[in-house]
Amino acid sequence: MLHIRCPYCQEMRSEEEFSNAGEAHIRRPPDPAALSDAEWGDYLHFRKNPRGPHREVWVHTAGCRRYFNVLRDTVSYEILDVYPAGVPDPDAPEETTP
């Protein structure tokens, strides 16, 4: 039974108040029409599923109903970080301006 800090309610809450909403920081294709079927299929269906730290989206379903990001170790289940939705992926390489 995980104990998760909601970054909006700013409290530790029990797992049953939350729902997992999958992998965080998925890069959405800006122009889906430009993608081949295979590329679109990759985007739709393929996820990282790592062993170890994993960035996930959770939602405080029974609480403030806000989505936020969680860095969770999939082996130990320890929660290493929580931060609001909209914060850029801390692991992403820095964007270079064209």
């Binding site: 309610c9 809450r13 029990s14 049953e16 108040e17 029974a62 609480g63 403030c64």
Partner: peptide, 8 residues
């Protein structure tokens, strides 16, 4: 008193 919480 003064607190409120949405919960299960």
């Amino acid at each position: 008193p003064g607190r409120c919480v949405q919960t299960v």
